[in-house]
């Protein structure tokens, strides 16, 4: 059989390497990089009442910075950016405050318990994101048992004049942050656990033997060594939270939109593609900074390993 041997000769030449590298490379260039460049180009196009609603050159300027000008001057966009950054930042900090003790706790339980608990941390990540958001809609609604419980607790604690019929939770920024913390908490716990698990327990013991109190051991030994994990977890929460679309649409306040909703509305309802593209590019620029910090620390963490 000459055919298989010819095939194998071809495989043994540079051919198979070219396939291995080339196919995924070409795929990503065609379906990720090219569409992305189209968006970048779109952000400097002119909005026209044609279909598709944009134009370069001709009677319109080839490069039109009008959309970017509006991003920087129109308070609608500035407010949306501030809301997004604020919500994502608060969610990241809350995730850290809850996730850090949880990750530390996971390193202190027995090995068999640890595996079960880690599974329980990962399990919500596999179940539908949309349904996890939906579960909170059921809890936060006016007539739900959870809202009733919070209402009773509030009415019990505060003077009678402040009593409320139900706690207003749905369609607020508070709800957005709460659900973000809920859905993104595993992203914080897992990298924190990974970095805390690697720490040498004898360092703790050495610090204790030298007379440190537990709080001092934590502050001087554990915390500084887990900074790469904190940065990684923080970025993994902040970056998707800032561009979030599903959560604010379902539980957020429509009069305080986040940037993802603005992009969708400019594209869909307003049919202003250049504007949507300009807001998208601005959002990406906003995310480049935290991503650079992240990869900087990541490189540092890998260098010290």
């Amino acid at each position: 059989m000459s055919d298989p041997s010819r095939l194998s000769r071809w495989f043994n030449s540079k051919g198979w390497v070219a396939i291995l590298i080339g196919v995924p490379y070409v795929w990503l260039i065609a379906l990720f990089l090219l569409p992305f460049f189209i968006v970048v180009a779109m952000s400097v196009a002119t909005n026209t009442p044609t279909a598709p609603p944009f134009s370069f050159g001709g009677e319109y300027p080839l490069i039109n910075f009008e959309s970017f000008g509006r991003v920087l001057t129109d308070t609608l966009y500035l407010r949306a950016f501030l809301t997004s950054i604020f919500n994502a930042l608060v969610a990241a900090v809350l995730c850290l405050l809850i996730g850090y003790p949880m990750a530390l706790g996971l390193t202190r339980v027995s090995r068999s318990w640890r595996n079960i608990l880690l599974m329980l941390v990962i399990l919500p990540f596999w179940t539908s994101f949309l349904l996890r958001v939906y579960a909170w809609m059921g809890l936060m609604g006016k007539n739900s048992w959870f809202n009733g419980f919070l209402t009773d607790a509030w009415n019990f604690l505060v003077p009678i004049d402040w009593a409320v019929k139900s706690v207003p939770m749905m369609n607020t920024n508070f709800a957005v942050v709460l659900v973000m913390v809920y859905t993104y908490l595993p992203f914080m716990i897992l990298p924190l656990f990974a970095s805390l698990e690697r720490l040498d327990p004898t360092l703790d013991e050495a610090a204790m033997d030298l007379g440190s109190r537990p709080s001092q051991v934590f502050r001087d030994v554990t915390l500084p060594q887990s900074i790469p994990g904190i940065i990684a977890g923080g970025m993994l929460v902040f970056i998707p939270a800032a561009g979030e679309l599903v959560i604010p649409t379902l539980v957020g306040n429509a009069s305080q939109p986040m940037i993802g909703k603005i992009i969708q509305d400019e594209f869909g309802q307003a049919r202003d593609w250049p504007m949507a593209a300009a807001v998208a590019v601005a959002l990406l620029l906003l995310m480049v900074v935290p991503t650079m910090i992240y990869s900087h620390y990541q490189a540092k963490a890998e260098g010290t390993k």
Binding site: P35, A242, G243, G260, Q264, A277, A280, L284
Partner: peptide, 14 residues
Amino acid sequence: IMPEVITGISMLIF
């Protein structure tokens, strides 16, 4: 790390 909205819009425009 690309926000889903941007991936979605760029795909749709493409």
